[in-house]
Design a protein around this nucleic acid. Structure first.
Lengths: 207, 207
DNA sequence: GTCTATAATTCGATAGAC
DNA sequence: GTCTATCGAATTATAGAC
């Protein structure tokens, strides 16, 4: 690659911006905060991303694209083996990819979880951008839920899935904090958290 | 009262600030936005509240104090009649006061619900302030839940109550939006929403 | 209590040299 | 691609007249 330093600068900006926005929120984070900690020039942000908003979209996309892909993969795997799958299996396929993100890089696992939770709870235009990137998983899972719970209306399942997402966001925002459900980020503890969460939510889905 | 206009100015600032922060968030709302729409002078904010942060605290307190009081009242009523109360009764006592807020003033019912949801999902110092004002309800309800579900550990009940609050926040943020659980704000629809939410969450609490 | 005027910073964004 | 320098606008907060 003839532009190795460029890639590094771009990634450096993305990494630092993701961490700061996870802590302080989008409006609470300034480009100057980002370039200061990333040790890059202020103009580099506009050169690589165009604007603060487009920088945010790039961060979201870097997370959301492989995440949604993995969710849909797991859903597809389920449909191949058991049809219709149980509510627990569907919820596990939905919740595992986002919660396993926290087991990634040593220093970034908390950041990534908090970022996801934060950016879906903030005002416009943040919420709109995050929704656009994360939402392609909703319809396929709604369809699957409909087949597994045929006696519930689609509107019912929609607001219940909404509460599933709300619980996911809460767990993500609190990830790593003492007393939180996802306090420890060891792989086996993450798996245990997923199981508890699935049990809690599956009971609600059936109510 | 010798300071009738003062009270009006103060209330006017509180009302407009609450609405704007509900829409745009704390950092996304400027004092100039507030005084412009409230048709008061910029200096009046600092005269009456001291700073933007203290203004926010005043808004939160105006909502939280009577709300928490009402939650604890309903809890006390329950303990007088049935001991221990059912999980459904406890959740109803917890969820009814915040969700009935949306039935108040004609123009402000959506605003108030959104404000509550928003300010508990934002970064510091907003979250800290909101937590300080809203949290006095947690311990009493945890105690009551412990008695109604004696075979679950306190740490279990804690993260489950956390998910209850997360669901409440989600419902509040989406209040009034098409497709949301709390789409209509008519009193009978709010009651129906509370019942659905209680059924969903009570099943999870018992899981 | 309310107002004007302004201080003192900080913001996102850009022009232009290298 | 990276840098300096800066623009224009916006921010919270205050000083001081009325």
């Amino acid at each position: 690659m003839t532009t190795a330093t460029t890639t590094d600068t771009k990634t450096q900006i993305l990494d630092v911006a993701e961490r700061l926005i996870a802590e302080k929120g989008f409006t609470g984070t300034t480009l100057r905060n980002i370039v200061s900690e990333a040790d890059v020039n202020l103009a580099a942000v506009h050169y690589h991303f165009g604007s603060k908003e487009e920088l945010f979209r790039a961060i979201v996309r870097r997370i959301a694209v492989p995440l949604v892909e993995r969710q849909l993969d797991m859903l597809e795997q389920l449909r191949k083996t058991t049809d219709p799958p149980s509510v627990e299996e569907l919820l596990t396929a939905f919740l595992t990819p986002p919660l396993e993100l926290v087991m990634g890089d040593e220093h970034y696992r908390i950041v990534r979880a908090q970022f996801m939770g934060r950016c879906r709870a903030e005002p416009e235009p943040v919420q709109k951008i995050a929704h656009e990137e994360f939402s392609p998983n909703v319809e396929p899972f709604l369809d699957a839920l409909q087949r597994s719970l045929p006696d519930q209306s689609r509107s019912q399942l929609l607001w219940k899935l909404d509460l599933v997402i709300a619980s996911l966001i809460r767990v993500q925002i609190g990830a790593g904090k003492p007393g939180a459900l996802l306090e420890s980020l060891q792989p086996q503890d993450v798996q245990a958290t997923i199981q508890k969460l699935v049990a809690f939510l599956a009971a609600g889905m059936r109510s």
